[in-house]
């Protein structure tokens, strides 16, 4: 999602924000998590680039690392309005790795 807004390589992990959310299933949890990030970005004027996430029984605890949005340095192209349920998929691939995807409206 950060890549939809700006070049993630330009985001420094200077400030930590704690985020917690929950949902009845893992797909809905992905949307909740992204929407929690969107809310924090919008109200704190921040952009995030690193995330420590623990999920236990559809409860998510996270620390999002980032910094104040700097329009000159980050050159943000679009703001995220909200995470959608479109193309929403969370699952484990054959090689054991997890993938999580949905469309974010910008």
């Amino acid at each position: 999602m950060t890549a939809a807004i700006c070049d993630p390589g330009r985001v420094r992990a200077r400030t930590a924000v704690r985020i917690a959310c929950a949902a009845p299933d893992r797909e809905l949890l992905l949307v909740e998590w992204l929407n929690a990030l969107i809310y924090e970005m919008a109200t704190r004027g921040m952009i995030f680039g690193r995330f420590d996430v623990i999920i236990d029984d559809h409860q998510l605890q996270a620390i999002a690392w980032g910094e104040a949005l700097d329009r000159e340095r980050h050159r943000p192209a679009a703001e995220a309005k909200g995470a959608t349920y479109t193309a929403l998929e969370v699952g484990r691939r054959d090689d054991g790795r997890w993938t999580a995807a949905c469309v974010v409206d910008v």
Partner: peptide
């Protein structure tokens, strides 16, 4: 954006209570 986000979720979760079968969650 926030109102859309919150009610989309509330409508997805409440759909079974209203006997609404969603072919696409985004039609909440």
């Amino acid at each position: 954006h926030q109102i859309g986000t919150e009610f989309l979720r509330d409508m997805v979760l409440a759909a079974p209570d209203h006997d609404i079968a969603l072919v696409d969650r985004e039609l909440a």
